[in-house]
Amino acid sequence: MFPTPIEKRSRAAQITYQSLLPLALILWLLPLIAVMVFSIRPFSDFTQGNYWGVPSSFELFTNYGMVFFESDMPRYLLNSVFITVPTVIGAVALSCMTGFALGIYRFRGNLLIFFMFIAGNFVPFQILMVPVRDLTVDMGLYDTKLGLILFHVAFQTGFCTLFMRNFIRALPYELIEAARVEGVAEWRIFWFVVLPLMRPAIAALSVLIFTFIWNDYFWAIVLTQGPDAQPVTAGITSFNSQFVAQYHLMSAGSIVAAIPPVAIFFLMQRHFIAGLTLGAVK
């Protein structure tokens, strides 16, 4: 193990390390801690210039209550859910199939198609912006959740295919050959042999895509406007103009907007990190 395990070092080194850890963490999360402290202060603290002293009162419930009951925030949050969940299902479903096709079969053009998916996944969004916006307007889907979902599903299929294909490649190929010898139809091999083995990949990918889509901002402002369809990342800017310079409410609002992906991360940590670091080890 590298670096040398701290247990093998001197007592002094151990104590230094143990006390350095929380300090480093506080330093690392300092901007976030500042926002959390802001979000529980009363408005009067800001007018009196008491930014960093002891809060004159504890207003957690008032501030977060404002966010949930006096603003469009719940609508934006709900929009985010209705955009994110179908996207996750769609992109994972499509990429299970593309990943299967590219991972199991050998045919001419296999690698070319695979690389096309990877390359497409890396392009800057701006090169797609004008045509995709046009297409969405032409289909009558501008400012709808469906318009956003369709694009997200299509774009995420690139990354998901990369992920699924590499995962399927690592499965024992003998299983598939054995099934073929038994005369099992190809689609049955997909459904009954490969898909059950892909469960960990599906879980990891779902968690990752959920976070990616929830956090999307660019496409939200290109393809939607207003509280009918906008997700929370775009909604937060309208929220902030509603409560301009009221830092206690803006802080509470952005914390609320950030909670769902954070919660998913802490609940499904193992899957999340497995997904993110796929390929980091050979």
């Binding site: 199939m97 096709a101 296999n110 299509a154 299929t157 997909f190």
Partner: peptide
């Protein structure tokens, strides 16, 4: 035929929304 059928929906989406727009 099998891999092509499996690829079709994903490639269609990807072509319409990513490859052609470029």
């Amino acid at each position: 035929v099998t891999p092509l059928l499996f690829l079709l929906p994903g490639m269609l989406f990807f072509a319409v929304y990513v490859i052609f727009p470029i």
